[in-house]
Amino acid sequence: MSLLTFIKQILRRPISSGLLTVGIAVLLWYYLRADPSHAKPAVSRKMHIESIPMWEGSGNNYAYLVTDDKTKDAVIIDPANPSEVLPSLKKAVDGGAKITSIINTHHHHDHAGGNTELLKSYSVPIIGGKDCVKVTKTPSHGETFTIGESIKVKALHTPCHTQDSICYLFEDGEDRAVFTGDTLFIGGCGRFFEGTPEEMDKALNQTLASLPDDTKVYPGHEYTKGNVKFGIKVLQSGPVKKLQAFADSNKQAQGKFTIGDEKQHNVFMRLDDPTVVKFTGQTERVDVMSALREAKNSM
């Protein structure tokens, strides 16, 4: 029975105006309590993350536009190919967004190479590693800053792929995302161009593994298919098979998996797993990491 029908029935009955008012008030309270859908829903705001694919079919990079929905302040992460990034930025700005900074995960051209061109359209600070093009601010490990009113960002130094590699943890209430550049991929990790197996072990299995398990992972490249092709050779576990099935039926995996998932299906984060150890023929963690990376490089 609807609320209106309840009230009409009350109105048909002889009753004093005082009792009528109380009766309607009680009925209204009960009705809304029993059926909350009639009450105005609470507004829930979360950071908005837009993935911008770049060089699809070759580098398969990602840039990311992250916006604080409350203030519309926004940052662009690794906008390496301006011709593919600028249209998305213009659309966002036309919709009310304000670009407040460029963020780089490391200095390689396919991540920081678009900085100079982007500055022609958006005169903003560049936050990134010390070797990034036009960088104006290099946050220290663990340093935090904010975007808009509600997004808290923590810089996490993860040297190995490059010595200036930085991952960024974004938190908006209980919503968490980490932008990992070329340190952590879905089901894999970056090459050790400027670092050592020890450094990658620390980056993955201490720094990033210590994040809350529900933190969503946004890597710098879409390499999932290749990573799981290697991973399934090393470890035929349920989580790895699940990732393989996802990769077989989905083109993109960014933001679909969490740090908790990576601990289960990423062989570079399972250096103590007996099956992984057996595959490498090594016993020490650093040697297991080194052997895994060499095996992946040779695929």
Score class of each variant (00 low, 15 high):
Leu4Met: 13
Thr5Ala: 15
Ile7Cys: 00
Ile7Trp: 05
Ile10Phe: 08
Leu11Ala: 12
Leu11Met: 12
Gly18Gln: 10
Thr21Ala: 15
Thr21Arg: 12
Gly23Thr: 10
Leu28Cys: 12
Tyr31His: 10
Tyr31Leu: 00
Tyr31Met: 00
Tyr31Arg: 03
Arg33Cys: 08
Ala34Met: 11
Ser37Thr: 12
His38Cys: 07
Ala39Ser: 13
Ala39Cys: 04
Pro41Trp: 08
Met47Tyr: 01
Met47Asn: 04
His48Trp: 07
Ile49Gly: 04
Ile52Phe: 05
Pro53Gly: 06
Met54Tyr: 05
Met54Lys: 13
Ser58Cys: 11
Gly59Cys: 02
Asn60Lys: 02
Tyr62Leu: 06
Tyr64Lys: 06
Val66Ser: 05
Thr67Ala: 07
Lys70Glu: 14
Thr71Cys: 03
Ile77Gly: 05
Asp78Tyr: 08
Ser88His: 15
Ser88Phe: 15
Leu89Gly: 00
Lys90Asp: 14
Lys90Trp: 13
Lys91Phe: 02
Ala92Leu: 03
Asp94Cys: 02
Asp94Asn: 13
Gly96Asp: 05
Gly96Leu: 03
Ala97Gly: 09
His108Thr: 12
Asp110Gly: 10
Asn115Ile: 08
Thr116Asp: 14
Thr116Ala: 15
Leu119Met: 09
Ser121Phe: 15
Tyr122Gln: 06
Gly128Asn: 05
Gly128Tyr: 02
Lys130Gln: 10
Val133Ala: 13
Val133Arg: 12
Lys134Tyr: 11
Thr138Pro: 04
Glu143Gly: 02
Glu143Ile: 01
Gly148Leu: 03
Ser150Gln: 13
Lys154Leu: 09
Ala155Ser: 12
Leu156Ser: 06
Pro159Ser: 04
Thr162Glu: 09
Asp164Leu: 06
Asp164Tyr: 07
Ile166Thr: 10
Leu169Pro: 00
Glu171Asp: 09
Gly173Cys: 03
Asp182Lys: 03
Phe185Met: 10
Gly188Lys: 09
Phe192Gly: 08
Phe193Cys: 11
Glu194Gln: 13
Gly195Trp: 03
Pro197Arg: 04
Glu198Lys: 15
Met200Cys: 13
Met200Ser: 11
Leu204Gly: 09
Gln206Glu: 15
Gln206Gly: 02
Leu208Asn: 06
Leu208Gln: 02
Ala209Phe: 09
Ser210Pro: 04
Pro212Phe: 11
Asp213Gln: 14
Asp213Trp: 11
Lys216Tyr: 13
Pro219Trp: 07
Gly220Met: 08
His221Phe: 14
His221Gln: 14
Thr224Met: 10
Phe230His: 09
Phe230Pro: 03
Phe230Asp: 06
Gly231Asn: 08
Lys233Cys: 07
Leu235Cys: 08
Ser237Arg: 06
Ser237Gln: 04
Gly238Leu: 12
Val240Gln: 01
Lys241Cys: 01
Ala247Ile: 04
Asp248Phe: 06
Ser249Thr: 12
Gln254Trp: 11
Gly255Val: 08
Lys256Cys: 14
Phe257Val: 07
Glu262Gln: 15
Glu262Pro: 02
Met269Arg: 15
Leu271Ala: 08
Leu271Pro: 09
Asp272Ala: 14
Pro274Glu: 03
Val277Leu: 07
Lys278Ile: 04
Gly281Asp: 07
Gln282Ala: 13
Thr283Tyr: 08
Arg285Asp: 01
Val288Pro: 00
Ser290Ile: 00
Leu292Ala: 00
Ser298Lys: 15
Ser298Gln: 14
